[in-house]
Design a protein around this nucleic acid. Structure first.
Lengths: 193, 193
DNA sequence: GCTGGAAGTTACAGACCGGTAACACCCTAG
DNA sequence: CTAGGGTGTTACCGGTCTGTAACTTCCAGC
């Protein structure tokens, strides 16, 4: 029915995959566990046998999303082995593609917006994962031979984060449409210094 | 008790102000109408006499927030009458101050993240208000004599939007800490063209 | 074929949600 | 003094939420 999830995988995997998808599309507080299990072709009891709470499921979803993002970084290295500057341009290109393909932005940032309780267990996970991603981009910039690597990486981060959230407010024809141009001219300007 | 809202204003104003504050702090779906009315020192019936639904209240809150932001723009004109470039720097400065003062970001962007239903009545309001703000910034850049005014305005928009959402994920010590430096060097670079 | 564990089913608890009805109150304008 | 509108109070509706209990069914490994 509303599946799209491979029918013959194990319930835990189906739940995780379905939850990722539904949290992404409808937001965390916009989806109940009943809806997830139904879409995953299973039931609530099975969910609670594999995840001790909805919060725990949320955290597992965020980790899974981060793992997917990590695999994309591997593609950069595979396509441009050793050429860090080419990988940086590939990062810009990939970010732009993801912007075009989907207008619901970053799951971790969205989760941070939704989960406002300062002691929510997902918040520390979000922070850890985001910091890891930041480190990766800083390293990439540095290895690409850019002087102020941290500053470039942080600027690119903010631009992308901004593009993703801007799309949700004003759509794809807003400021985010110029993301590639902004990012590329930024990189050029940092390389010229 | 949990007030902070002037006790002797009219119920409608107290509700609106309290709702703005609570939506901002805890998110829209994280606050029920009961909690709002209680904090505003009134009751649910009175809320529904002034607002036909929670959605309507949300929209009024967003409009009120935008109106506050609009008043900040008036300050720029008042402090630097006619000097658009100084006003642009004041914009950067003010944005930075707001970043330091509060880590819950932009109410409209946050609402867009939370309200995922594509036909939610608040979404068109968010888009309108955000587009109006964009126009203001573009006009300011253009009147400051900058060539590619749209591009600068959009870049600054994304940087600020990104800084606001980044703070919610990784805190004030993350990439957003460099916002002023990024914005100022951007402006300088655009002016040099 | 038997057995044990994973998965499905049904029902429910307890809380909270947005929204409404009915009625008592108070305060101000006439 | 009185009338009436704005406000407060209480109780309620139907729905949804996370999470659990008790029980049945299925299926793979022996």
């Amino acid at each position: 029915m509303t599946d799209g999830v491979a029918e013959r995988s194990r319930p835990r995997d189906r739940i995780l995959e379905t939850a990722q998808d539904m949290f992404h599309k409808h937001g965390i507080k916009g989806v109940g566990v009943d809806a997830i299990t139904e879409a995953a072709g299973t039931n609530k009891m099975t969910l609670y046998r594999h995840f001790e709470s909805k919060d725990e499921l949320i955290i597992e979803c965020l980790r899974a999303t981060a793992a997917k993002a990590s695999r994309i970084w591997d593609e950069f290295e595979a396509k441009h082995p050793g050429d860090k500057l080419a990988q940086l341009h590939a990062w810009v290109q990939k970010a732009s593609e993801l912007l075009s393909a989907d207008s619901r932005g970053c799951d971790m940032a969205n989760a941070a917006v939704e989960l406002t309780e300062t002691d929510h267990p997902a918040r520390r996970v979000i922070k850890e994962l985001k910091e890891a991603q930041r480190e990766k981009l800083v390293a990439l910039c540095r290895d690409a031979g850019i002087g102020q690597a941290e500053l470039l990486a942080d600027t690119l981060s903010l631009l992308l984060e901004g593009a993703r959230v801007s799309m949700q407010s004003v759509g794809a024809e807003g400021p985010s449409a110029q993301f590639v141009r902004m990012a590329e001219s930024l990189i050029a300007s940092f390389r010229a210094r």
